[in-house]
């Protein structure tokens, strides 16, 4: 027994809901869209006020400016840092995750605790940067090729381990037994049998580690000095001081650093969203 009034009410509710979502998405995405758009416009169009929504002129002048100013170097360095971080965190993380889930040993709970507390602690690394700086300087480990990869692997290892542990826990231990019967040792079991079954989790973990290293700023801004070692986020920050209110080159350097991230999230968004919730909410 449906009254027509109720149907209109529901329709109105849906329209209101859609409107709110559109407004939210607009407010949310405007900086990224408007920023990327501005980076390919000529200087006059960027500085125009009132802002012009449509201009036909397109220009790559700002990209030329930043690459002539040496932006390729931080782009390369950060690519290497991010790849090394993803690989290193996956290797150490899968070993630790397997041990936590499958092996029973004294201190297992402590290892688990170190990993679980490490997830939020690593996002609080700003508090640790000053002691880390003093400590790494006294060891002579700042401003070296290994400085940032080492730090970035440590920062991303807890989340990677946690995601992989969740995936390994979902695989039947009978497979371990079968592999053991076939004469495989634990390493062969992990790398030959278990990990090939965790591909989505490995993908999600690798992307989180890659993006984590790629996006890091604070450690990168103080632990290395030479231009060869400077990561991309630091180069963008230094461009702010260099170009000031000249938004074109600034937004172009931000765009170069952001396009890979946006592409990754659009391609693998579903996988990452599930990895994120598996890692943080379900405990």
């Amino acid at each position: 027994m449906r009254r027509p009034g109720k149907r209109y009410l529901r329709l109105a509710g849906q329209v209101a809901l859609a409107t709110i979502l559109v407004i939210v998405l607009f407010l949310n995405l405007a900086p990224l869209v408007w920023g990327l758009l501005a980076s390919i416009r000529p200087r006059e169009a960027i500085m125009a006020y009132p802002p012009r929504v449509f201009t036909e002129a397109m220009s790559l002048e700002h990209y030329r400016t930043i690459f002539e100013g040496g932006f390729l170097q931080p782009l390369q360095s950060s690519t290497i840092y991010a790849l090394v971080t993803a690989l290193g965190a996956l290797l150490l993380g899968s070993l630790a995750a397997y041990a936590i889930d499958r092996l029973r040993f004294r201190g297992r709970y402590l290892v688990l605790l170190a990993v679980v507390s490490g997830i939020p602690l690593a996002s609080g690394a700003a508090a640790l940067i000053v002691p880390n700086y003093i400590y790494l300087t006294s060891l002579g480990l700042t401003n070296s090729v290994v400085t940032l990869p080492m730090i970035y692997i440590a920062y991303n290892l807890p989340l990677v381990t946690w995601i992989l542990k969740g995936a390994i826990a979902g695989i039947s231990p009978e497979l371990d037994e079968a592999a053991a019967v076939d004469g495989a040792n634990r390493f062969q079991t992990l790398f030959g049998v278990i990990l090939p079954l965790c591909k989505p989790a490995i993908g999600a973990a690798a992307i989180f580690a890659f993006v984590g290293a790629w996006n890091e700023f604070v450690a990168g801004s103080v632990l290395v000095e030479s231009t060869v070692l400077r990561p991309i986020q630091v180069a963008i920050y230094q461009n702010i001081g260099f170009f000031g209110r000249d938004w074109g080159p600034l937004l172009a350097s931000a765009a170069v650093a952001t396009l890979p991230i946006i592409v990754i999230f659009i391609l693998f968004g579903r996988l990452l969203v599930s990895g994120l919730t598996a890692g943080s909410v379900k405990g």
């Binding site: 998405l25 890091e216 969203v273």
Partner: peptide
């Protein structure tokens, strides 16, 4: 919609702050 909502979180803090 979920991916659209999460993009500002995915970009770096430097880029996000700048944009």
């Amino acid at each position: 919609v979920q991916i659209g909502v999460i993009l500002p979180w995915a970009v770096s803090s430097v880029v996000g702050a700048l944009m």
